[in-house]
Design a protein around this nucleic acid. Structure first.
Length: 379
DNA sequence: AATGCGTGGTT
DNA sequence: TAACCAAGCAT
């Protein structure tokens, strides 16, 4: 054997390594897949409704946080037509606490559309799914692959990380998305002749499980990875530097005031506008939330009720951090006389039933702060 | 294309 | 602890 052919022979495993990736990945998945409530057992067909519901809930949300919500939803609404018959308000109440509330509005709108325009049956193509509210490129591909075994590769944050490391993608996100999409598709197994399936859904879920448990953002466990031999970043010992992305700027602090008015065992609330921040959710009346706003300015926006006791400012502030800005709220309380009318657009709700209201967490913090006796103002 | 949109967990 | 991250979508 000549030195040259020895060299070629040595390079051979590298080539076969790349083409073996889909097989290695599926073999790993068969041994290490996570058992999750919305996943079908091996060999079982998955229910498109459950796949869809879980995919919507999992958008930018951890598996752990989704678990209880998923169980609550399927128990109350076992199929898409049941959800389509529900009121949007019931859906929002059930969603409260999970965040990104436009997902809940779109979830309901999607259930209505599937029920009325598709006879209660989900479209089984990416294109058909993509046309539904709340379903974007990722979710359409995920449902198509997982629920309908279409040969397509959804790319989420996990898969972006795994693929950008595997191929040492130097381009920054989000510009690198098309390239990563293309590279990710090379991890799909070929469709076998005489058998349309390629286990595309399993390949996608395998990459997500890999990203969640092994190819983690920090300190990835490369020694346990089924794809480690062909991983370019690992070979260069630069795993943790991928994916490349520009640092993002944090928003400016905004301030405001919240007004907690009680009438016996009831609380004065209103609903936020349908669109925008916390759209459609319940809140106590409050001022605008503005950068650099003075407390005195915010207080001028207190609701105007007759028969109200003096406003009392609670000690301290409520802080909350949204994706794009931090918020600081001062909290004022007052008591209303029995039978005081709620101002236009507001209503009284029993404090005992607040748990079932569509209250975002920031409002739960405000109410807890307001009702905390240790924060009573100095007398 | 860049920005707005929640919340909880990890490091 | 401040920063980052988590199965993205709509506009």
């Amino acid at each position: 054997m000549s030195p040259k052919s020895a060299l070629m022979a040595k390079s051979e495993p590298i080539q076969s390594e790349a083409s073996a990736r889909p097989t290695l990945l599926l073999a790993w998945y068969d041994r290490h897949r996570r058992r999750l409530p919305w996943r079908a057992m091996p060999g079982e067909t998955s229910d498109p409704y459950r796949v869809w519901l879980s995919e919507i809930m999992l958008q930018q949300t951890t598996v752990k946080a989704v678990g209880p919500y998923f169980e609550k939803f399927v128990a109350r609404w076992p199929d898409v037509t049941a959800l389509g018959r529900a009121s949007q308000d019931d859906v929002l109440r059930m969603w409260a606490g999970l965040g990104y509330y436009s997902r809940a509005r779109n979830l309901h709108a999607c259930a209505v559309a599937v029920t009325r325009e598709h006879g209660g049956v989900f479209p089984d193509t990416e294109e058909g799914l993509r046309a539904l509210p709340g379903i974007g490129p990722y979710t359409a591909a995920a449902i198509a692959a997982i629920a309908f075994d279409r040969r397509t590769m959804p790319v989420d944050g996990n898969i972006e990380r795994v693929v950008s490391r595997l191929f040492a993608v130097e381009e920054e996100l989000p510009q690198a998305k098309p390239l990563i999409q293309q590279l990710a598709a090379t991890l799909l197994a070929d469709a076998r002749a005489g058998d349309e399936t390629s286990r595309a859904g399993d390949s996608a879920q395998a990459l997500m499980d890999l990203g969640a448990s092994i190819c983690t953002p920090k300190k990835p466990a490369c020694s346990l990875c089924p794809l480690n031999e062909g991983c370019t970043a690992r070979a260069l010992a630069t795993q943790e530097t991928f994916p490349r992305k520009a640092p993002k700027k944090s928003g400016t602090l905004r301030r405001g005031a919240a007004f907690v008015v009680t009438r016996g065992g009831e609380l004065l609330v209103r609903s936020r506008p349908e669109k925008g921040l916390l759209g459609g959710m319940t809140e106590v009346p409050g001022s605008d939330w503005l950068a650099g706003q003075e407390d005195a300015t915010a207080k001028q926006q207190a609701p105007d009720l007759k028969g109200l006791s003096r406003w009392q400012r609670k000690v301290g502030v409520v802080t909350h951090v949204f994706t794009h800005f931090p918020l600081e709220l001062v909290v004022y309380t007052a008591k209303a006389e029995a039978r005081t009318r709620a101002p236009e657009g507001m209503r009284w709700v029993p404090i005992a039933t607040l748990a079932g209201e569509a209250l975002p967490n920031v409002m739960r913090k405000v109410i807890a702060h307001a009702l905390d006796p240790s924060r009573a103002p100095p007398s």
